[in-house]
């Protein structure tokens, strides 16, 4: 084997080159998904994710999973169907949450001084694990969309419940009954507060209603199924390796 015929000098060097590429590929996929997913998520569900007073039992539970299932579905469409890597959803969510946590600490707290227990991100990991496990066990896009997508919506609220529960206890303040999260928002008025009052703080069943969260979660799960299908095909499209011929004209 001459040097001109082979790219490497030994099998050991080939293995080393392959492993080095693996790490570089992982870094690029991770950071590109992080950037794309984060800008998508913050601009479609961000306000519900930024503040505890927006993390209510109705709209937060509905909106967050629907807009969050997108990139996991697309990443799975590439990583599982091309490489049989069963971590497309988890790696996407980990990337998103890393970007969010860095931001909430460094900027929401570090620059504009909102306490972290007022602006921590939502937890999306349980739903992502279910998506990956269902796909790995079934290898079926339909089953992953229906079972995994529904699970992604249903598990969102329970997955966040241990974190948000202390902030959903009722308090009385100036003769008004509200949650502790609402009280946080009352003390940290933001330029988005009028929208919050208009959109979130208006349902009579919203604040303490016991049935609102599961109903919202089911609705979110149903829509997540549809969004999963859609983004599976987006992921397939983004994975294409086609060239446009230079002499196409």
């Amino acid at each position: 084997m001459s040097a001109s015929q082979s790219a490497v000098r030994s099998r050991a060097e080939a293995v080393q080159a392959s492993r080095t590429f693996d790490w570089m590929i992982l870094f690029v996929v991770f950071t590109a998904i992080l950037g794309g997913y984060h800008i998508h998520y913050m601009l479609t569900g961000g306000d519900w994710d930024f503040w505890t007073d927006w993390k209510d039992r109705r709209l937060w539970v509905t909106v967050a999973p629907i807009v969050a299932i997108t990139f996991p579905a697309a990443a799975q469409a590439c990583l599982w169907y091309r490489y049989r890597l069963p971590f497309g959803a988890v790696v996407s969510v980990l990337a998103l949450m890393l970007g969010e946590w860095i931001n909430r600490y460094m900027n929401f707290w570090g620059w504009t001084y909102f306490p972290v227990n007022f602006c921590f991100p939502s937890n999306l990991i349980p739903g992502a694990i279910v998506l990956d496990v269902v796909l790995m066990l079934s290898s079926s896009v339909t089953l992953t969309a229906v079972v995994g997508g529904l699970g992604f919506g249903l598990l969102f609220y329970p997955g966040n419940w241990p974190i948000i529960a202390p902030l959903h206890v009722p308090v009385e303040y100036n003769g008004m009954m509200m949650t502790l999260a609402d009280l946080q928002g009352y003390h940290y008025v933001r330029t988005g507060t009028p929208e919050y009052i208009r959109m979130v703080e208006k349902g009579t069943l919203r604040t303490f209603g016991k049935d609102v969260a599961p109903v919202s979660a089911f609705f979110s799960g149903f829509v997540s199924i549809i969004i999963y299908f859609l983004w599976h095909f987006f992921g397939k499209w983004f994975s294409k390796t086609d060239f446009i011929a230079d002499d196409a004209s």
């Binding site: 870094f27 690029v28 996929v29 991770f30 950071t31 590109a32 992080l34 950037g35 794309g36 984060h38 800008i39 913050m42 961000g46 930024f50 970007g99 969010e100 860095i102 931001n103 460094m106 900027n107 929401f108 620059w111 504009t112 909102f114 602006c119 933001r190 330029t191 988005g192």
Partner: peptide
């Protein structure tokens, strides 16, 4: 490129959100 995308699309974009919610 991935590293630059992180800083642009994630770090400084969400940071913009908290600035505008404050100022």
């Amino acid at each position: 490129y991935g590293w630059a995308i992180y800083w642009g699309a994630s770090y400084f974009t969400e940071q913009d959100g908290t600035w505008h919610q404050t100022i």
